[in-house]
């Protein structure tokens, strides 16, 4: 991640990907959200969203709870503590990078 000689050291590339950044930003603002809501907000296909969620879950950034509401599957996603602090770090790094580029 280099731009005009500037670097973002240690940027979390898992979060930096645009679709996952939207997912993390939404989940950071709420307690939990279901798959349908995330799909609507991100505009991703079911397969794409599932794949991004799986990556975030594998890293321990989110928890996924699969249940049923009646006969309809219900997938609830929420940030873990690790995910929340990783997102906080990412924001701080990005903010400081933007500050540097404005100098």
């Amino acid at each position: 991640m280099s731009q005009r000689g500037l670097t973002i050291e240690g940027i979390d590339r898992l979060i930096h990907e645009p679709a996952r950044l939207i997912i993390m930003t939404i989940l950071n603002a709420v307690e939990s959200a279901d798959f349908l809501y995330l799909q609507r907000e991100t505009g991703l296909t079911k397969g794409n969203l599932s794949s991004h969620l799986a990556k975030l879950e594998a890293e321990g950034y989110i928890e996924i709870e699969k249940t049923y509401k009646g006969k309809i599957p219900l997938t609830i996603c929420r940030l873990t503590e690790a995910g929340r602090s990783a997102f906080g770090r990412y924001r701080a790094q990005w903010k400081s990078f933007l500050k540097e580029t404005r100098k």
Partner: peptide, 12 residues
């Protein structure tokens, strides 16, 4: 609402 556009639980 939730069956149409999804469920969100808000942080206290």
């Amino acid at each position: 609402t939730y069956p149409r556009t999804g469920f969100v639980s808000y942080r206290r």
